[in-house]
Design a protein around this nucleic acid. Structure first.
Lengths: 213, 213
DNA sequence: CCATTTTTGGAATATTAATTCTAATTGATA
DNA sequence: TATCAATTAGAATTAATATTCCAAAAATGG
């Protein structure tokens, strides 16, 4: 199982089936939410019997957790990779936005699930693993906060509390993706708008003297 | 029942009890989510029997919907009132932020519920009334978008699509409140930060020449 | 205070759906 | 191909809980 030791056909098939079940469940959960999706439906849609599914996952809850954990890992890795390739903080912010947009365009079902239940998950899932997901969300905040902090140190950004700025940034991004993901929009355009607002704010230069914030 | 005709004691008591049930349910839903909260718990916590509760609400779902509808109405009215009192667009933006912060500080249980299930609600609630809630959310977006539009026309804000900016604004705000509502923070301070970021962006003046957004 | 109406508590019912079980099938090994 | 182990389908079981029902209690009005 460890890296380097090749998997036999048997094991590969197992993996493939496991993943298949997760994909089917993800689609169903995204469409109808956790509670409205029954094991019978997952069984039917995946064309596996109950026992088979329970072979792979101890419970419905575990399926749910697995989807979140695996997709969130994927996302975090994807964003981290992208950030590494950018040099200056402004570039990094742009790259984070683009990476998130791209990822969620590719995984729309998951995004739906994510925005639908990220907050609820601590409540839906009794198990401690639910907290692991919560932790991964904070890992995302931390990543952005570090970029912000670097940007402040290097004089690119206003000296504001990095964590606060990171939260504002992610809030913007999430709600924005959430609104537009359903529709068939020009993503380049959207990316430009959010970048513009976040970096430059909405205030027009000619009025900036007036500000008394 | 119409304005002007005074309610008898009987009717007033009924209202009070109805509201009491809603308050209890709200607290429970906020703590454990919709599905984890049972009618038995609502009955126990409110010290009303089942039949009594079903006297007031046809179903558990109706209780949930009632909470959302009534609180959202309250919020919208509260924000609209506040906006009326402000003159220029910059002031209006600040006032909207403050009104939301204040409202949710006052109604923390509801905020929890709101952020937990706003997205999920269309899925949790089968009934059409679920869509009414969705509509109210958009009413909020519209209100902000109008302020933005006015601001652009009067030259205060950059000419960006008002609805997009409104969504970004609300996303920021929601996530921000969400993060800090649990903790005992300096709200004035937080209000300043979000206002600053939204109005001026994070980019430092000295680097603005470099921007190639 | 009595008759009538309304309200109430909580037990009984019905439903829904997660999980387990069993018998049948499939696949591997020799 | 025969044997044994692993896998599977789907029915049966079980658990949870929303809703209904009914007898008892309380409020109302004459």
């Amino acid at each position: 199982m460890e890296m380097g030791i090749p998997m036999g056909r048997r094991e590969q098939e197992r993996r493939w089936r496991r993943q298949y079940i997760l994909n089917v469940a993800e689609r169903l959960f995204a469409r109808k939410g956790y509670h409205q999706t029954t094991m019978a439906e997952i069984s039917k849609a995946s064309e596996f019997g109950m026992a088979t599914i329970y072979q792979f996952f101890k419970s419905k809850e575990k399926i749910y957790i697995a989807i979140f954990n695996e997709k969130l890992d994927l996302l975090i890795r994807f964003v981290e990779e992208a950030v590494k390739r950018a040099k200056d903080p402004v570039e990094k912010i742009k790259v984070i936005l683009k990476a998130n947009f791209d990822f969620f365009k590719q995984h729309q079902d998951f995004f739906k699930l994510y925005s639908m239940e990220r907050e609820a998950i601590a409540v839906i899932i009794k198990e401690d693993l639910g907290k692991g997901i919560y932790k991964k969300h904070h890992q995302g905040i931390k990543l952005v906060a570090e970029v912000i902090e670097e940007g402040i140190k290097r004089g690119y950004f206003h000296p504001l509390p990095p964590k606060d700025v990171a939260i504002l940034f992610l809030g913007m991004m999430e709600e924005y993706i959430n609104t537009w993901i359903k529709e068939d929009v020009d993503w380049e355009q959207k990316l430009k708008i959010i970048t513009e607002v976040f970096l430059n704010g909405i205030l027009n230069r000619k009025h900036q003297g007036e500000r008394n914030v």
